[in-house]
Design a binder for these strands. Sequence first.
DNA 1: TATATTGCGAGACTTGAAGTCTCGCAATCC
DNA 2: GGATTGCGAGACTTCAAGTCTCGCAATATA
Lengths: 187, 187
Amino acid sequence: MEKAEKRRPGRPRSELSKNAILDVAYWQVMERGYARVTADSIAKAAGAGKQTLYRWWPSKAAVILDALAEKGRARIDRPQEAAIRSGDLLGFLRAVIPAMAAVGPVLRHLMAEAQFDPKLRAMLRERLIEPRREPLRQILATRVADAHKREALVSAIYGAIWYRLLLDEPVDEALAVELAALAPPAR
Amino acid sequence: MEKAEKRRPGRPRSELSKNAILDVAYWQVMERGYARVTADSIAKAAGAGKQTLYRWWPSKAAVILDALAEKGRARIDRPQEAAIRSGDLLGFLRAVIPAMAAVGPVLRHLMAEAQFDPKLRAMLRERLIEPRREPLRQILATRVADAHKREALVSAIYGAIWYRLLLDEPVDEALAVELAALAPPAR
DNA sequence: TATATTGCGAGACTTGAAGTCTCGCAATCC
DNA sequence: GGATTGCGAGACTTCAAGTCTCGCAATATA
């Protein structure tokens, strides 16, 4: 049902350009900072036309979000798997927090853009927020029985991290330790 | 030392224009929404020149922040005083959370702009964030002895509220109840 | 009163990036 | 071979932020 339309007439989408755009978006944003990356600079450096970018993504921010989500899958989610299986909250936070801090400047700008753009907000929730929230829920499942309480705790933990990122306050291992202590002990 | 320079030569700042600008900024942003308020629209409606606005504030966002902080003092801080004195965390959150939710759309946009502008970020912390954080610290003082733990809890509580505001998730009384339960009971 | 100084409203102007449009060429399907 | 869709290149449009300029108003000092 998805792939029924696999072969449409006309020239197919260039995977080469797609990958080049995502790659350039990621590196430019890391090296120059979000503000100094433009749709033009991405397209130019990727050897692509600006239209090609806008054909597949609705905005510049969407490209960067996509690029970050791509990289994140490999760099963030893998290291956490052990912690998730063993319900090790502290271990989980010790992996998540430095990873988020490392891309903090990008995250903060994406969150900012998302405030002006509901579509991007939905995309952000879907690609970055929710995928990280679910594992935390699993870890907390054995400690907090009530679903509402659990959800509030999820908001408190990720909320604290985002809050500090957005306000230029320390996002470090000490925070991981304190946040881990917020949850009731495993039973 | 501050007011020694009270009388400088030249025409003094017009308090009339200043107040008109702050007032218009507040109401326009409430009625039209942040995105549809421009420096021009504020100046026009306030019967002021755009230069007058930029002479006293560094950016459009700074005006709106100032306007919001002004109103906030009366509407938010007053009702909380009783809760603060009695160390009533739940009462405090029951006052703060609806107040923040009521101006949520403005808060979210200010936080967003602040991500692109370090000066505005400092102003935001100073005018909106810190003044609300201090009372919470006082309430928690009797419950959490360790200063680092207390600070983490402050980040968790306000973080959760902001996180939900920014992500369009419920910021309501239920959240107040759950967040209040995060703190250890008063001794 | 005279002069220097600073603020005022009005509005023209500059800037810069986001997003759109157009062109001629390339790759694919039928 | 014709229809269709994507491509790179780059011109073009749009829009709001912020600056500049002008002539006038209000204050200080002399």
